[in-house]
Nucleic acid binder design. Structure first.
Lengths: 257, 257
DNA sequence: GCAAAAGTGTTAAGTCTACACCCATGC
DNA sequence: GCATGGGTGTAGACTTAACACTTTTGC
């Protein structure tokens, strides 16, 4: 089935398998070369970029739908994914915009469940940039790429607002919950972890105090192994102590950074 | 139009005015005689109690829908209402349950938009128990009553879980945001405010430290007037300094209690 | 005058911030 | 051997927790 047919079929029959009026958009953060990245798709029907999103199957838990969307785009499984906000402006997507998009693809339809209003649930995900080998666009997009958080392209609908809210939410969460697992490689150095926090929080942290606090939280295990090939004292590698990390996710860290 | 007709019409034609597959449930907290209360409706179709809920009109912002629901039940306007979580278990409401409920009302239907699965968005509201003069049930319920948070009756669907989550969320929020406005009368004493915090947090707080912190947050204005008719030193009345209160809602209090 | 609860201040413990020195490595 | 950046300790500032005494009021 060619792309046009698949899109047309989605517009004409999607309501048979998906819930109506509700969608999911994922803000997938990655961390690479000391920069915070977001995963975006280039839409086929406009010159805009969109968040990876999708719909909820009729018998599917919404969280599973978000997992599925993430898996489809990145091949990643078992990711810490959380809903953070519902976006529900009535004008956020309209029949007119949708018809225009379809027209750009050479399709025309009078009625479709896709023309109805959608309320969208925003999900946050933190993934290991390096583990993402596959980047697959969906049927509405041609490319799937990482963008630096502070040089984003023009965005589809209210997706810029969704990203802003996701970032704010993540910064708030940082004060309670650890991050890093899923976002860093399995072994990492303390300065790398600190860079991550600094990037997400967008502020400098004291190296010594940071180390003391994180160590105090007991979410790390220090390895004997040190990083090789650096022109200075070799930093230790650490990995997360998954058991304590999970606990901290639930009960919080107990301090601010 | 009698009640049965109204319900029947809602089941048969509701989809013309409401979004499908998505509903709203409000956890409305009130504070009275040192106890935290929740507003519940007694369902007509079962012996269970339900959260005040409803649906989103096709051209309505979801937040407005929540406001409307609250207004309809309590007559209260301009309430601090926030979405806190989306509940989306596929089995949380089923066609079978709905048909059973209808049958209890002497109605029978083969198909209805109401038989489809619903994802529900939980909203938190804090209201002044004393300002709520009107308590109006909706078309699915016979009574609208306050219940003590720790002696709740048997609940409809997953509404118990929704209340639990709402309470947890509110306890978390307390560490960042002030509460009290909307929940207390316009003038209140410091011990009354403290009781409110103690009740919501479910723990004792030191009277002196509490006072110092709250005063330090500058969200209160002390009045000259004192409470009369108490067999001990008369406490001052306070009211909220709305301007600073609003700021604190956004930027947080800056301390834990 | 006594019981009950409000108002206020102080001290000690704990936490956070800021800062300096030493150490290991590649070049 | 020197430049770079990692590893650790500590003093001072600040915040928080614990606690006691005085005040006002109704009875």
């Amino acid at each position: 089935m060619d792309l046009r047919n698949r899109i047309s079929s989605h517009y004409q029959n999607g309501q048979e398998i998906y819930l109506r009026n509700i969608s999911i958009d994922c803000v997938i953060f990655g961390f690479h070369e000391n920069e915070l990245k977001v995963l975006l798709l280039h839409t086929l029907y406009s010159n805009l970029w969109a968040l990876p999103g999708g719909f909820i199957l009729k018998e599917e838990h919404m969280d599973d739908a978000a997992d599925r969307i993430l898996l489809d785009r990145t091949g990643l499984d078992n990711i810490y994914l959380q809903q953070f906000h519902v976006f529900s402006k009535p004008e956020r997507s309209t029949k007119e915009i949708n018809q225009k998009f379809l027209k750009n693809l050479g399709l025309e339809l009078e009625e479709s469940w896709m023309f109805e209003r959608f309320v969208t649930v925003g999900y946050n995900a933190l993934v290991d940039f390096n583990k993402v080998k596959k980047l697959e666009s969906d049927i509405f997009s041609s490319k799937c790429e990482w963008f630096n958080i502070d040089s984003l392209p023009d965005m589809h609908l209210d997706h810029q607002e969704i990203i802003n809210t996701a970032l704010e939410k993540m910064q708030l969460d940082l004060n309670y919950h650890p991050i890093g697992y899923n976002l860093l490689p399995e072994k990492f150095t303390m300065p790398e972890l600190q860079k991550l926090y600094e990037t997400v929080l967008n502020k400098k942290l004291d190296r010594r105090n940071f180390q003391r606090k994180i160590i105090g939280a007991k979410i790390l295990k220090r390895l004997e192994e040190t990083k090789k090939g650096v022109a200075h004292k070799a930093p230790h590698y650490y990995k997360f102590d998954l058991k304590n990390y999970q606990t901290a996710l639930k009960v919080g860290l107990g301090f601010d950074l």
